[in-house]
Each structure stands twice: as C-alpha cells, then as structure tokens.
Amino acid sequence: MSSSDGRGSGQGGEFLATLWSLLRTPIPPGRRGFLALGWPLLLLFLLQVASGILLSFYYQPSPGEAAESTRRILRDVDGGWLVFGVHHWSGQAMVALSLLQPLRVLLTRAWRGAAAGSWTLGVLLLPLVVLLAYSGSLLKWDVGAHATVVAALSAVGEIPWIGPSVAYMVRGGEEVSATTLSRLHSAHTQFLPWFVFVLVTFNLVILARRRRLGRGGSR
C-alpha cells in the first residue's frame, strides 16, 4: 500500500504518485472552471429543469396512465425520445458528478478555510440529487418501478423510530397506491428541485463572494 503522499512501490505506486501529483497541481485561474465539476453540475441541473418541463406536458402521474404516457413520449411525441433520453442521462450524470465533486474535494483537502461553506453545501446536495434521480426513475411506474417502490418503502419502514412514519408519509397510506405516485411526482417536480436550486444558488453566492474578496478557490 502506498503512503499518504502517493509514494509507493511498483506500478500501482507510480500510478498513485502520478494521480496524486495531478491532483496537487495548481490550476491556472483561467482553466479552473474547465477542470472543476461545479459548473457542469449547474448546466446539467438546468438541462434537467428544461427537459423536465417539456416532459411534464405529456406525462400523466396516475397509475393507469404513467407507464403508457411515458411510452407515448418515447414512441409518438416528436423528439420525445430525445428529451426523455437527455432528461434520463443528465440525471445519471448529475448523480455521478455529485459523487465526484465531494470525492475530489476530499482528496485535495479543498474544504479548508473559505471553502468550508461550499463543502457543506456539496455534501448536502449529494443525497438530494440521489433522491431526485431515484424518484424520477420511479415515475414511469412500470412493473419494475412499482416492485422497487414496494421493496424500498418496506425497507424504510423497518428503520426504528422514524422509519414507519416516513414510509407511511411517502406511501400516503398502508399500501402503495395512486397517492404514492402522486407524492413521488410532487417530490420529483416540486420539492426536491427547489431544494437543489436553493443549495446551488447559495453555493454560487459563496463562490462569487470569495472571488470578489480575492480568495479564489475551486468551484
């Protein structure tokens, strides 16, 4: 196993040393935006919002219609496959970047000093983005999604103290029903995007303030 400064033995050690040196290379201010992951995240979020609004014109959040309306979007609506595909893949990319961003900060110890606020917001953003993507993947409400909701809420219900209440709240009753789909739809289209938006805006405000004060820092 290599040491903490990346020096190790063999090819693995060399690779880690190279990776470590790459991570520690100072980035010129002009290129910082390119290498950082914050701005692609913002772009993906905006893409999600735009494609989500377009999808909402055709999607029907009712158990009898959800899967069929999704299929209609993919099959019959002009460019529907593209909008749905971009919405799906930008969601996946957003989760991946939300995972990579704290990992990069963790490896480069970029949480220090003035960057502490951004780090906190990034950590809070991660579960929200995962929930946003996961709730979206369930909205097609096909057999797989339904089975997943049943299994997931059953697992959540087994968590002591808060589990049963949370599961009951999401289900909207004792069983998975139309209310569950309605609540997942509300969470995916109304609550969670706003939370993400607020966190992203706060992060931008912090970054703008740091830039103005000349503290720089990564995004």
Partner: peptide, 10 residues
C-alpha cells in the same frame, strides 16, 4: 444509443 426503456404497466 442507450434509450431508457419502459416496462409493462403493473
């Protein structure tokens, strides 16, 4: 290339 699919309705 990899379009997201939709299964049968429950």
């Amino acid at each position: 290339q990899f379009p997201p699919g939709v299964g049968e309705a429950p």
